[in-house]
Design a protein around this nucleic acid. Structure first.
Lengths: 223, 223, 223, 223
DNA sequence: CATGAATGAGTATTCATTCAT
DNA sequence: TATGAATGAATACTCATTCAT
């Protein structure tokens, strides 16, 4: 009787897919405006103009709904960011594109971004969480680490631990998002983007020492 | 009769102070292990091996308890960090001391640090919160901004927006904390500390241009 | 989603209306038998054979439930009493109809009457009550005062303060109700009604002095 | 160990009696100002400047405390009223003295009077109440009934059911008290007293018929 | 597919009472 | 005697979930 108990093989009908999308969208709005803790199924249903039962009908439970929201937003942000990053040939360009793209996403899709952060914070220590847990963060970090390893191999970047820098980049972007969530439009995201880019360019740029070590003589660089 | 109805001037007895401290400690442990949302009075009482009523007896309500936890940890972290920061004469030294001190606190008092972060995240969207709200973050940021303004005035730091850099520093430290909370002892905090220090030294260090601009005739800009 | 969040315009379904009526009825019974203070949602739910949540589902809160009980009973008693009162052309007849009607209501709907009194008593000192407060008594008093003013203008009634007499009438009726609530069927309400009517007829009847003052010569009245 | 478990034979010491009196007085004040339902042991102890335990030490429980308050106030009111009533030789005078004395008590000892009313209302349907119940009202009614029987025997009063009239007198006095409790000093108690006296004089006064019936030939009844 | 209704475990808080000191 | 501390049951209310229609 429950139509979608997680792992069904039958494809979803068009209407069903539409309902799910609508519910996911309303969930994003509710989470962004009220916070994760206040996002009850009742408030989501009310905003969607449907009854609570509908949500239970289309999702196995609140956990699946939240996971779906998470996946949905992550897919969207990946679509926005990854392409422009990959378009850059060099690591420094990729890093810049990643930061600018991420903050642009915050600017253009504030609700989705805030919802993502709320979910991640709200679920981090949720005991016995199976659908979503802290490790969900990993793919994003791995993507950044790859950029850093490339840049270090190419001599563009100085010596640093790729993972530590990856964590730092993500943290700074999340910090910008928190500022935006807290203070709203008063936060100048264009400035935040420029500053973050400058910060990490300075932080990653190869020094003469790095150049020497990695390439050979290389005298008189940037004299 | 609840002994502390908000504004009493009578000093607390030794026993009462001990109970309060015990409850605060258990609250920290519960928040650190289960998360802010799951930290119910019932779970705290259970961990403390007391009845729920005891908490209500010693604290005016959950709000006061949480505020007490927050104040308690903040006082502790300030005691650890501020002194060493102020001992540094120059801005660069202060920044290094701030980062090292903060990560050292994470290493030495992981639970307290995680609890602090959880409270802050949990309260961010908690509507109608009076004891504690998002602006509580501000003093910490202001402290960092003062360091950056000093460093820029002295020509130690390059040109950047002090607030943006302050948010970045705090975010990176919080990021290290989240890594620690997620992966436990597997995270090498000593390395994280070194990397963060190096990151922000590189990110803030004055370039020749800055030096020129702030000190000398400023000929031949970025030739 | 609670179906009635205070101000909805949608009409209530038949089933919902029935449930609400059932809960209101059980609340009346509980209040009448145990008293206002003991009328907890738990006891009401138990008597109704439902879970506590059902009450919360159909009513915004205990306040709304109590207000509904109050309104419901007040409407009923007004329907029984007011029509017969208005049917009387003269003030003396109205007063008699009011007293007889009120005590007849006690006889026929003892539980409702007791519940009304309990609510009124229970709410009198209930601080910060918004849905219902002590002034709710006023309309009933005003209604009686109007009768007395009419009777005095027509010379049917002697000189007295209308408000004081109104308070007295209500008090005596409430006193009869309390006797009934305390001693049950042992109280002869028919006798109580006759006695109350006789009491207030004697207490309000115009004396020769009043007649003289209000009309002029008026000799030989009821000689 | 509990010093006064209701039925101890040892006399109370002076200090103990003083403590009890103090607690009783504070209870009266709290009940009068906050209402019976809000009169918790905590609030009473706070007002008395003692700890909750003291109350439990001196009284077997809250029930005994309330009963003590009741008895205490009843004794006081009886002392004020009964003497002046008994001083009157004729029934009409006694009735007048009773009403005037009772309302004077309300005027002079508003708190005690309100507390009495609150207790009586609050306890009326208190399940399994042993220390105090509705029958406590009886002695007061019996006292009034005796006056009415005397007055009827003497031909001062008309024919009516003594009990009904007794209930009416008590109800009207309680009504005045409720007005006072609700509207405070805005209620003119002197006027209320005059009106109540006039009301019951008119309501009880023997008519010619009564006189005839009880004394003379009784011709021409209500022609 | 959708709904309204119902459930039951969960939340913080209050309070009379007990008891060791 | 008196106190502060602790208890445990009770309070109203919330919410994810289930289910018959």
């Amino acid at each position: 009787m429950p139509p979608r108990a997680g792992s069904s093989d039958a494809p979803r009908s068009f209407v069903e897919e539409a309902r799910r999308a609508q519910i996911v969208q309303c969930t994003i709005e509710i989470i962004a405006s009220l916070g994760y803790a206040q996002a009850s199924l009742a408030s989501i249903a009310e905003r969607a103009g449907i009854s609570k039962g509908v949500i239970s009908y289309h999702f196995a439970g609140k956990d699946e709904l939240i996971a779906q929201v998470y996946t949905s937003v992550m897919t969207k942000v990946a679509g926005k960011v990854l392409a422009t990053v990959e378009a850059q040939p060099r690591a420094a360009g990729k890093l810049r594109a990643y930061i600018e793209g991420s903050i642009a996403f915050i600017a253009d899709h504030g609700q989705e971004a805030v919802a993502l952060l709320e979910i991640w914070n709200g679920l981090r220590t949720h005991t016995g969480q199976q659908v979503l847990d802290a490790r969900t963060y990993e793919p994003g970090l791995e993507f950044l680490q790859a950029i850093f390893r490339q840049g270090q191999a190419d001599g563009e970047f100085r010596r640093f631990t790729p993972r530590a820098m990856a964590v730092a980049v993500r943290s700074v972007i999340d910090g910008v998002l928190i500022q935006r969530a807290t203070y709203g439009a008063a936060v100048d995201l264009a400035e935040a983007s420029r500053e973050a880019v400058a910060l990490f360019e300075a932080a990653t740029r190869a020094t003469p020492d790095d150049t020497v070590r990695s390439k050979g003589p290389a005298r008189r660089k940037r004299r």
